[in-house]
């Protein structure tokens, strides 16, 4: 009886120790992926500057279109555009993170991790943590840079915080999907090759113009496009204020997509592990 109790206790300690080790490993890999992103400005600067350029360009180009029928009530086009800018930047940033995972596979670092007693899930989560953090940072930068130019957030400071969480979740969702491609193909080129697809998805969504102003097939495609719902959740915080509905849409939509995407990425990871 005492032996059984001792065995159960030691089993419990072992599980606890294993969990703690797994957390430490995931944290170390997350730190590595974050530092890797910030130490290579050439990789991250374009996903910061391009969306800002497009936002300023859009504000000057489409500033007068906010009076068109179907356009929501906004203070400026930039206020409408803020959500699109965040989504655009986060989408492009996530590709960079996934391409880094593919590079790890190509240059053998992934195999070295597998040869070591490393937590398998930690390899994926560690990589995604870097992208998620970068997504949060991008969102904060876009909000604070564009705010003085008219991109006001009706939801105030709580709304900005919710937007940052939402940006991080979008980054996690897209990063997980792109990581699936990286794990499936093991090729950074293949991951970069999905970039045009993201670009097309972004343009055929309500990121730059409201769905209500579109017509025919374009409106249908934008209605089916998940990017539209990611953008509109963020936009609700920007335009409607800090309401339960707006916050739920901004957080729950990317969270749901992130859960599905993580499931797909995890399944791709298991599939790659079976091949080893």
């Amino acid at each position: 009886m005492i032996d059984v109790a001792l065995a159960q206790k030691s089993g419990g300690d072992l599980a606890e120790h294993s969990l703690s080790l797994s957390m430490r490993q995931t944290f170390a890999l997350a730190k590595r992926s974050t530092l890797e992103l910030f130490r290579q400005p050439a990789l991250v600067v374009p996903s910061m500057l391009f969306p800002l350029f497009f936002a300023m360009l859009g504000n000057s180009s489409f500033g007068r279109t906010t009076s068109l029928p179907g356009f929501p009530k906004v203070d400026s086009y930039l206020q409408f555009q803020l959500a699109g800018t965040i989504t655009q930047g986060v989408l492009f940033g996530s590709v960079t993170g996934a391409a880094a995972l593919a590079t790890d596979i190509q240059n053998g670092f992934f195999d070295r991790l597998l040869a070591a007693p490393t937590s398998r899930t930690g390899i994926l989560l560690g990589r995604l943590a870097g992208s998620t953090l970068f997504g949060a940072l991008q969102t904060a930068v876009f909000v604070f840079v564009l705010m003085p130019f008219g991109a006001s957030v009706s939801a105030g400071i709580p709304g900005v915080l919710a937007m940052i969480v939402s940006g991080a979740l979008i980054s996690l969702a897209v990063g997980a999907l792109m990581s699936s491609v990286a794990l499936k193909t093991g090729s950074a080129e293949a991951v970069q090759g999905t970039f045009p697809l993201l670009f097309i998805l972004l343009f055929f969504s309500s990121a730059f113009f409201p769905r209500e102003t579109m017509s025919g097939a374009y409106q249908t495609i934008a209605g089916l496009n998940p990017i539209s719902y990611l953008v509109e959740g963020l936009r609700a915080l920007s335009l409607e204020g800090f309401t339960a509905s707006a916050t739920a849409r901004a957080i729950l939509v990317p969270l749901a997509i992130a859960i599905v995407a993580l499931g797909i990425a995890n399944s791709q990871l298991r599939s790659r592990l079976r091949k080893h």
Partner: peptide, 21 residues
Amino acid sequence: LAMPMFNMIAFSGTFFAITKM
């Protein structure tokens, strides 16, 4: 070839409403 086709289709659809100005 893809770039002009994409630009033409995407911009025409997304910014369709600006012709109403």
